[in-house]
Amino acid sequence: MNAAAPTVDWPEQLYRTLKRAGVRQVGYVPDAGHARLIERCRADPDIRDVALTTEEEGVALAAGAWLGGERAVLLMQSSGVGNCINMLSLARSCRFPLLMMITMRGEWEEFNPWQQPMGSIVDPVLKLCEAQIYRAAKADEVEGLAERAVQHVFGDERIAALILSQELIGKKVWVK
């Protein structure tokens, strides 16, 4: 890597993308990869941050938000995708716009082998659920892909997942 390259602050870019899109409800299960974005949303008085007990709640939350005229986003880790599968029927049956931003585990420099089984099937599972996938491997492509996902979701009332690769997020440090 070129040490002189400017650092791209992609969590901040994601926050600004959500603001530009007019997102008012942010559902999430706390996640280290999304920590900064969650922190920004929690500090924003115009965004309602909704901590969830399980990710599928966020699919239903986003549907309710849209019924009431607000845009929502669902933030989660790759393991949460599995928790959403049946509830995604709600978005598919009614064509609710659903924007998901997913941080990956189990695909690169993963210390915890229990993350691999779900991490390895995130893309095919989402494709089967009719989600358009935008996968970001490098920091400088996050914002552009996020904008495309926003357009796909709210412009066409569809489902999209912005997938943030584990290499982008960085290795989880396991020492205390």
Binding site: G58, A60, A63, G64
Partner: peptide
């Protein structure tokens, strides 16, 4: 209930 929550927050 969660659909109700999203709706209640929006309206």
């Amino acid at each position: 209930a969660m659909i109700g929550l999203g709706l209640a927050l929006a309206q």
